[in-house]
């Protein structure tokens, strides 16, 4: 119980940092989705782009998140903005990949049937491809959200706030209650996001495709 003392000593600080954490996450996921979705749809239409994008995406995975954050500093300074850029760079990948896979794994016969029946390509996209890919796209968004919550803890290092601040300060000051006040809400937040978006994923799965 000793470990939890920070929570009732400084609840308003924990809540403020939690708020910052959520803001970082939501803004980053929102921007990522807005860029990644159209982009992913584009690469399902242009095969040579797919190859290029997937290669670049895999390469980008090898750069540590910490380094991406750090390297945003010389370009954008410290604070909220560079942190958002770094988070967006990390969060786009799962959305792009899942959207791409979700659409390209649709049975080609379904698409051909649609074309053969006289659906226009935007009708096929909106009435067939997107609804069928929706569960997979949502799984990508879930992934992106969990990743953002995780990388946002590191954002404290470049002055963007968030719950990571308590973890870093807790380590530096050898203050375990402070450490826990950062770690526990972060972990719960990630788990909660995972579960809630997972639920949403199920509700959005078209009825005919539920197991």
């Amino acid at each position: 119980m000793e470990l939890l003392s920070f929570f009732y000593q400084q609840p308003e600080l924990v809540i403020k940092l939690l708020g910052e954490h959520l803001l970082l996450t939501f803004v980053a996921v929102g921007i990522s989705a807005a860029i990644a979705l159209p982009f992913a749809i584009l690469i399902t239409r242009v095969p040579w782009l797919t190859f290029l994008v997937m290669g670049a995406a895999n390469l980008s995975q090898t750069i540590p998140s910490l380094a991406i954050l750090g390297l945003c500093i010389p370009l954008l300074g410290i604070g909220f903005k560079p942190a958002i850029v770094a988070l967006v760079l990390r969060a786009m990948l799962p959305i792009v990949i899942n959207t791409y896979v979700g659409i390209s794994e649709i049975d080609p016969a379904v698409i051909e049937a649609g074309r053969g029946m006289g659906m226009r390509s935007w009708q096929i996209l909106t009435a067939v491809e997107l609804p069928l890919a929706l569960p997979v796209i949502m799984a990508g968004l879930r992934n992106a959200t969990v990743i953002c919550i995780s990388v946002a803890t590191l954002a404290a290092l470049i002055g963007a706030g968030g719950l990571g601040e308590l973890i870093f300060r807790g380590v530096a000051m050898v203050d375990q209650p402070m450490l826990m006040a950062g770690a526990i809400p972060t972990a719960l937040l990630a788990i909660l996001a995972d579960v809630l978006i997972g639920r949403l994923e199920l509700t959005l799965t078209p009825q005919g495709m539920r197991q």
Partner: peptide, 21 residues
């Protein structure tokens, strides 16, 4: 999968009280 969901920095933090730095 629960463990996999926990942000890495938080997971490190949880282990410090038990295993130290």
């Amino acid at each position: 999968s629960l463990l996999y969901t926990i942000p890495s920095l938080a997971l490190f933090a949880f282990l410090i009280p038990f295993l130290g730095l």
